[in-house]
């Protein structure tokens, strides 16, 4: 496994906002098909790190490589086109559009110049409609296609977001708390969904639900005060003393 070339390689990345150091000297990598979870207490700099990987925030220092190419200087849309997709901690679907239109926006983003067409109606594009429906079908919400996105339940919106992120087989998925605000049933459904994707798409996952994290992740990185204190497989993280001290407050880990 270690011989595989990482999809994502983060090297010595730092970021501060004014006087606040959000991330300091972060290095990590994500291997093909791997689920790499990022855990840590609130304020550990997880979301800042994801934002830097997505290209929304520029690091002060360090470099980010996607498939060996330096993408540090690319902005968010450029990185999305290269295959880095993200979901947001706060559900971000286009509430006033239908579910199908949401998926269509994700699909046609990849089609380049076609999005500048101003004459031909979108409804006339059968191929686009089919691929949009297929994207919804992948996460099991094709039946909701014609509903306004605002009318979906929280869990359904989360699935829609995942569907949009999955369009076009991304190289890397950045999932910012995909289970946030979900009930137990919805969470286990989403875990199943992600487990199916696992192995084909590399994922970097931020999550507070440790049950879900430990059942999904191949490797974990623990972030404390903006810096990784440990990286390893679930078992080694569970038994790592430093992690206990910093994150779990010295108690033994019983995933709650």
């Amino acid at each position: 496994m270690s011989l595989e070339k990482p999809v994502l390689s983060v090297q010595n990345v730092s970021k501060s906002f004014g006087g606040v150091q959000a991330n300091r000297d972060v290095s990590l990598d994500v291997l093909p098909g791997e689920v790499h979870a990022l855990i840590g207490p609130n304020g550990a700099g997880k979301t800042t790190l994801i934002s830097m990987l997505a290209g929304e925030v520029t690091p002060n220092d360090g470099a980010i490589y996607l498939d060996g190419h330096d993408v540090t200087g690319l902005n968010a849309p450029q990185r999305a086109k290269r295959g880095i997709r993200r979901s947001f901690q706060i559900t971000s679907v286009f509430a006033e559009l239908t579910v199908l239109e949401n998926a269509t926006l994700a699909c046609q983003a990849l089609s380049g110049r076609a999005t500048y067409r101003t004459w031909r109606p979108i409804a006339a594009d059968r191929q686009l409609r089919d691929s949009s429906l297929a994207a919804l079908d992948k996460v099991g919400i094709a039946a909701l296609a014609d509903r306004p996105a605002a009318a979906l339940s929280h869990g359904e919106k989360r699935h829609l977001e995942l569907a949009m992120a999955l369009v076009g087989e991304p190289r890397l998925l950045l999932l910012d708390e995909p289970f946030a605000g979900m009930g137990a049933d919805e969470t286990s459904e989403m875990v199943e969904r992600l487990r199916k994707i696992k192995g084909t798409t590399a994922m970097l996952l931020i999550e507070h639900d440790l049950d879900a994290v430990f059942s999904l992740a191949d490797r974990l990185t623990v972030l404390v005060l903006g810096t990784p204190v440990a990286t390893g497989d679930p078992d080694s993280i569970r038994s790592n003393a430093e992690v206990h001290a910093a994150y779990f407050g010295k108690k033994p880990v019983t995933p709650c």
Binding site: A54, E56, N75, A76, P77, Q78, A80, K81, R85, R86, F88, S92, V93, F94, A95, E96, L97, L105, A106, A109, L110, T115, M164
Partner: peptide, 16 residues
């Protein structure tokens, strides 16, 4: 319409 509702999301989808 996407830009009006959530520009950041549009960028995350790959739209300049």
């Amino acid at each position: 319409k996407g830009c009006r509702q959530n520009e950041k999301r549009m960028q995350a989808l790959g739209y300049q």
